[in-house]
């Protein structure tokens, strides 16, 4: 009896710990550079879609939201989850220092199992600036710490 309880406990704890790795990004850092522009069109927007975002089902319906911290933010950065293979993208999110959490992916269905399968979406970033916003040589780079959070919806 004691042995069975121990095994059962281990299985449940294992299932819980599996969920503890539920979301991740394929790279912890990313560097974007806005380098060109035209007089008529302003600075040229730079796109980057090299980051894969991975997430699992929770036991309940869930969503992924995004927040950012960027002290002394000068330039413009947005993100969109594209082609999620579970749930729906909430569209383009402008990343602003201190912003409230904004939905990135919604309607991630729940599962009664342990949700061990990773689902993915591409994080499509767009970096932009205006002539009036200046440049990094004089003002420094912007460093965004972007936090993705999965919660029950």
């Amino acid at each position: 009896m004691k042995t069975l309880l121990t095994i059962f406990s281990c299985l449940l704890i294992g299932a819980s710990l599996t969920h503890a790795q539920a979301i991740k990004v394929s790279q912890s850092t990313l560097a974007l550079s806005v380098t060109t522009g035209t007089i008529a069109g302003g600075m040229t927007v730079v796109s980057n879609s090299v980051t894969t975002f991975s997430y699992k089902r929770m036991t309940v319906l869930s969503k992924i939201s995004v927040q950012t911290s960027c002290p002394n933010q000068k330039f413009t950065l947005s993100v969109q989850a594209t082609s999620p293979n579970l749930g729906s993208s909430a569209g383009i999110i402008n990343l602003v220092n201190g912003m409230a959490a904004a939905d990135l992916i919604v309607s991630v269905s729940g599962t009664s199992g342990n949700g061990s399968t990773y689902h993915t979406a591409t994080l499509a970033y767009k970096a932009a600036s205006t002539f009036a916003q200046g440049n990094s040589t004089e003002l420094g780079n912007d460093t965004f710490t972007i936090t993705y959070t999965q919660t029950a919806q």
């Binding site: 059962f8 449940l12 704890i13 060109t36 522009g37 036991t59 440049n135 460093t143 965004f144 959070t149």
Partner: peptide, 28 residues
């Protein structure tokens, strides 16, 4: 373990990424 499992429905998970944005000097 039961508490841990029930906790699933109310927990949140986070992942972070640092994005550095550099803008070059432009004079046209």
């Amino acid at each position: 373990p039961a508490l841990l499992f029930v906790f699933q429905s109310g927990y949140s998970q986070t992942a972070a990424q640092t994005v550095t944005l550099q803008v070059s000097q432009i004079a046209l």
